[in-house]
């Protein structure tokens, strides 16, 4: 089964365990500034939202890359940057409509979520199940079930 990261912002408490897990996996240190997943705080609204790459099939970053440094991992569906091929031109960072691929000035390459090769650390670290790793074909299942439950109440009432 191919899996996909699923994010439910309403469950997020803004603790940043995901950012620590991500950066530790990728860089060997707890370093939120190097995390591929970012949690945004909307203070006035009292809301939090984790956000990372959705691994588009027809990925803008991949098509924009002039040196074909971005390829698809066929097993996970992740769009993966080849460190050796990337020339740091940043065209992909302009092409991506979501902002989830970014340049890093120390390495001179771009970095993005690669789904940790199929075992994403962010999902494992999340204490509230705001980030889960679920069947890629059924990311709507929870909402579908909730809607079904509502329809059931309608039937019972009539």
């Amino acid at each position: 089964m191919q899996r996909s990261l699923h994010i439910d912002p309403l469950k997020c408490t803004g603790c940043l365990q995901c950012e620590m897990a991500c950066s530790y996996h990728a860089e060997g240190a707890f370093n939120p500034s190097r995390s591929r997943i970012k949690v945004f705080t909307f203070h006035e609204a009292g809301r939090f939202a984790p956000y990372t790459c959705t691994q588009c099939d027809e990925a803008w970053c991949m098509h924009a890359c002039p040196v074909e440094a971005i390829t698809t991992d066929l097993e996970t569906g992740a769009k993966v940057v080849s460190e050796s091929k990337c020339v740091g031109c940043k065209v992909c960072t302009i092409a991506c409509p979501f902002g989830t691929i970014n340049y890093h000035h120390v390495s001179g390459k771009v970095v993005k979520c690669d789904l940790c090769g199929g075992d994403p650390e962010c999902a494992k670290a999340c204490p509230t199940d705001a980030i889960t790793w679920i069947d890629a074909d059924w990311t709507g299942l929870d909402r579908m079930r909730a809607s079904a439950e509502k329809s059931l109440a309608g039937v019972a009432a009539s």
Partner: peptide, 18 residues
């Protein structure tokens, strides 16, 4: 409005209110 966590906290006792 919601509960909120400080950095790294898996309890999240913080209160966000209006």
């Amino acid at each position: 409005t919601t509960n909120a966590a400080c950095f790294g906290c898996t309890i999240a006792c913080g209160r966000i209110s209006t």
